[in-house]
Design a protein around this nucleic acid. Sequence first.
DNA 1: GTGTTTTGTTCACATCGGATACAAAGTCAG
DNA 2: CTGACTTTGTATCCGATGTGAACAAAACAC
Lengths: 413, 413
Amino acid sequence: MDGVTHTRTTRLERGRGALGPALELVHTGRAPTRAVLTSELGVTRATAGAVAAELEALGLITVDAHPTAAAGTQGRPSHRLFIADQGPVVLAVQIHADGYRVALVGLGGRIVATTSGCGTIPADPARILSEAVRAGSGLLRDSGRQCLGAGLAVPSAVAEPDGEALNPLHLAWPAGAPVRALFLQALADAKVPGVTEHVGFSGNDVNLTALAEHRHGAGRGARDLLCVASGHRGVGGALVLDGRLHSGSSGLALEVGHLTVNPEGAPCHCGSRGCLDVEADPLAFLSAAGRTPGPEGSLLKQATDLLREEYADASVRAAGELLIDRLGLGIAGLVNILNPDRIILGGLHRALLEADPERLRAVVADRSLWGRSGGVPILPCTLDHNALVGAAELAWQPVLDDPLVVLEGERTG
Amino acid sequence: MDGVTHTRTTRLERGRGALGPALELVHTGRAPTRAVLTSELGVTRATAGAVAAELEALGLITVDAHPTAAAGTQGRPSHRLFIADQGPVVLAVQIHADGYRVALVGLGGRIVATTSGCGTIPADPARILSEAVRAGSGLLRDSGRQCLGAGLAVPSAVAEPDGEALNPLHLAWPAGAPVRALFLQALADAKVPGVTEHVGFSGNDVNLTALAEHRHGAGRGARDLLCVASGHRGVGGALVLDGRLHSGSSGLALEVGHLTVNPEGAPCHCGSRGCLDVEADPLAFLSAAGRTPGPEGSLLKQATDLLREEYADASVRAAGELLIDRLGLGIAGLVNILNPDRIILGGLHRALLEADPERLRAVVADRSLWGRSGGVPILPCTLDHNALVGAAELAWQPVLDDPLVVLEGERTG
DNA sequence: GTGTTTTGTTCACATCGGATACAAAGTCAG
DNA sequence: CTGACTTTGTATCCGATGTGAACAAAACAC
């Protein structure tokens, strides 16, 4: 009741095995109380209590002192479990077409602090990464929080196991830039407190969007989640299976941009024609609507603004419907291959879904085999800065897998 | 040394947690000795010894009395672990275009006994299933083995969670036939000893081929395994991820037959044109080679015979290359989406691969993004009766997950 | 108030696997 | 052939972890 006394370390270690799963439940908002924790973990109340006490002792969660009685329920009210107010954070970095954004992200995907900058030297990945990491390091110093890791999101396929950005199309980076190594180097140079050499992770931004939405957004509760999004140029996809990102044997899974959705379509750099990449991205939409891309605002912003503000216009509507049909064809192909529980859409595709939800769902259902798997729910992304939160998820993963190893390592190191 | 005395049941239960993983290692041939078991499980020699003793006491494995010294190694020779000679089996049933085949399958994918029959009434799934199960029941009686479950393979997509055959194209069955329920009913009617109501599983034959090859064939050791095969009509796909079949949220994943591989191709019943289903199956090959399907022998047999015996013929060779190119395009599309470790091909596609391995690999590499994931190994299936062995794998799975629960249940039930 | 229901804690206990020491069975060097 | 070395297998102790039962606490129902 009055806090663990810490006289015996043996006592502290109680429930170590269930610690990770328990933290993950709190992290994803599926364990509001110890009672729920008990049933979700499938353990006894004694164990759940010990686990919660342990997580509290580690400074990761807090248990409210005065339980609030839920209306209409009998029995003793549950104490609620919260993510600790001043708990540790991870550093998340996102590189995009216009620069970078960094954030400190706590458990539960909570953005504690964030800042951004424009990429003055977009052709030099090392420089922008080091600039971003320095900004993050500053945030960290100001916040006074403990840092347990770092994650990076880039708008490119990232090849495993070395973490090279294979197609940083709209960054003017050299193809094959070793972003993971550069990120680790930047972390080491900035001497970010708490970030040791083995806690830097990186991934494709759509992958990380999917991960974030799965844990904290529209994908919560789905077992197999497919995410499709278009940000600037091209189309990206991602798949979460059983709570884990599926990035394939060399990190190159879900490169969905080259599904054929229009056999008579425009030629694509891949050698084929009518690929999703060139038929369903912001530029394709602007062209279809008869607009010329302007100099200000990203292609995504111009396209989504047009969709949201001028959908009554016949040419805009026709362009929207054309893109919905093509996107639907691509998604139906993916549904036939992957048969996911749920699909979430980001970027331009989210705007297309919101402009005419029924049309997209109808196209997907129509082109899916036997209609059954075509009934899959299609939802828009819900989180702000989801790629950033996803990058943080990568960094949190070791803690969720085994909180003690990471935190004890911090303590002793 | 001289067998467990069973005086204390507590002794018997030693190492229960590691029992399933250990059995799986022996089952898949990855644990020839206790020493290997120790390292593969990541436990101490003491635990591995206890686990092996427990598996032996359960009658699942045997340990040889006199260890054979491996040449050129120092130290005490290891006793080898074998799958028990007279251990339990599962009943596997496969329905195909020409009838059925049943087998008793032991651990390690070993076919202990098998028989087959032709489907006299192909339009009536209940009747052929009951005939097959009766044949299996006879095999079981003759063998005197204990039976721990049953599995069924059908040449159709099987929808979860109810197990309906959605497209039994070449069986003349009604679409949507509840094959799982019918199979369970047939098992109950035949009163197959040891097969209780909850141990009947069913799945698509290509899925089960992939599972069998992953465990015991060309897919061994792969983490993410893609299988593509064409038997009679159409093309099927399957995916094994982390040792588990990925069949999607409603069992309809990997319906790869409707990937577009020839935009100007023949119309498909799905409404599109140039689908893999109609461009790369045995009928497509025979047509491309200018042959008319004859009345005797399945389409698959006619096609593979032609490929193997007359590949020197210019028209056959041209047809083969045409199909390889289309198949390669389809596989490249899948590689871009799934990025598997390894690909295995069955049926006609296996024959195509064997006719000209380099051409297929070159096409896949050429059409895969960045070449990297195009370097994925492509291999032919290696097992006999692989769908049957895969059906058995489904039935073995509960035993591999927890041998004690299944075997204790048998004992007490 | 007195029961009932649900939540949380304490404590004894069983289970599981690790660590260590020891025993066994071979190779290798002389 | 003998002894040193290497590797495998076993016995035993012990710590880590979670269960079960009993008890206590905090609400509602009457």
